[in-house]
Write a protein that binds this DNA or RNA. Structure first.
Lengths: 124, 124
DNA sequence: CACACCTTTTACAAAAGATTTACAAACTTC
DNA sequence: GAAGTTTGTAAATCTTTTGTAAAAGGTGTG
């Protein structure tokens, strides 16, 4: 058993809304427990491990499914969807889609604006 | 996979306003993250690689699109425009047009004061 | 300053990729 | 081995990216 604070180093991920356990298939979104299936857990684990970094489709498909680059499938996308659903209402906040590349888990942070804001230019 | 700040040896370009990652499709203009599409990223990468040097249209069209000298297209110009927009407000500072030849990426340097009057820019 | 030529900008259409839903096959568990 | 759960796939739909055309704006030169 363990006490709060004495968790083994690096076994859990935690932020304001999500508690993720790398060893077990349960997690918490705020105070709600969510049960992840094995694949979902593996997938989220890999993304959380690389929080803030883009993980390319190829890598996910290779590491979790053992698929090579030649295999074309939507399986990953469907699993991402299932994960996002369980992470409600933060699904899209936590799991970002990088179009044409892969996905990225983002540590929770207060919503920011201006991220990709490209204003029109006007001279005065 | 990449986080701002954790640059891996020599994989990034950085100056006062721009952080560009050669491996991934994100970049930072000051503290704003910009997401580049694949083509935009390839294009900027090629220009940044040759910072300070003119890269002829032909070379860009050849290396990024595989187009031969015979092909007449405005595609490159449109992509340059999209890039400049995302690099706001430094689009024209970073990407210079070399009339009749191509484009050149210029490392950021302080504007010279008062020499040339440039009207205020305002976002609407 | 007129002309040819080049670039920028806008708008739109086509192509590529992601999301969503539904369903069937493959596993688990009892 | 029946019932419930998990996983993979197909297909329709939606979104984003990319390419092209055309109009407008610049540049350079005789």
């Amino acid at each position: 058993m363990f006490q709060p604070g004495t968790s083994k180093q690096g076994k859990n991920y935690q932020d304001q809304h999500l508690l993720f356990d790398f060893e077990h298939t349960s997690a918490y979104v705020d105070l709600r427990e969510i049960i992840l299936t094995r694949k979902e857990h593996e997938l989220l684990a890999l993304l959380v491990e690389n929080a803030g970094e883009i993980v390319p489709r190829e890598v996910l498909l290779e590491r979790i499914w053992g698929y090579g680059k030649d295999i074309r499938t939507r399986t990953l996308d469907v699993h991402i969807r299932r994960l996002r659903k369980k992470l409600f209402p933060f699904g899209d906040t936590y799991i970002e889609t990088i179009f044409g590349v892969g996905y990225r888990f983002q540590r929770y942070r207060e919503p920011r604006s201006y991220v990709n804001y490209v204003p029109e230019l006007v001279a005065v």
